[in-house]
């Protein structure tokens, strides 16, 4: 077997067992996944290594000073979480707000909207 450039370790969250999965990479290609007990674990590890995605939940300020809880409507790339929060830190929202309403579009250039997770009258 050819030499491995990089080995990444991923804790699987698919089931409570929490397999420590090793992903071997060579020349940007995944060549080996080990330590998982099932197929779902391999899939999870693959996506964690290539493009890990997370839903961001945070708050934005309403004009009256209160906080409105929000989330990204879909997962966004993990490495953009801070950029997204930074972008949202300046956002001021005017009520009333309906749950699910878009309060900010295309956060951090991801094409993903930020939506309210509660209503506000």
């Amino acid at each position: 077997m050819s030499a491995v450039n990089e080995e990444k370790s991923v804790t699987c969250i698919v089931c409570p067992r929490g397999c420590r999965i090793k992903v071997s990479i060579k020349g940007g290609e995944i060549i080996r996944i080990s330590g998982n007990l099932c197929k779902r674990g391999a899939d999870y590890a693959r996506s964690e290594v290539t493009q890990p995605m997370r839903v961001l939940t945070t708050t934005v300020r309403l004009e009256d000073g209160h906080l409105l809880p929000v989330k990204t409507a879909r997962p966004i790339p993990k490495e953009l979480l801070f950029e997204a929060v930074r972008e949202l830190s300046g956002v001021r929202v005017k009520g009333p707000i309906e749950i699910g309403q878009v309060v900010y579009s295309n956060v951090a250039g991801t094409g993903v909207d930020v939506v309210a997770t509660r209503s506000w009258n």
Binding site: L67, F82, R86, S89
Partner: peptide
């Protein structure tokens, strides 16, 4: 909240 953001925040790069 969000006041300290400029100084903090590196995501685990792995």
């Amino acid at each position: 909240t969000k006041e300290f953001i400029e100084t903090g925040g590196v995501i685990n790069a792995k």
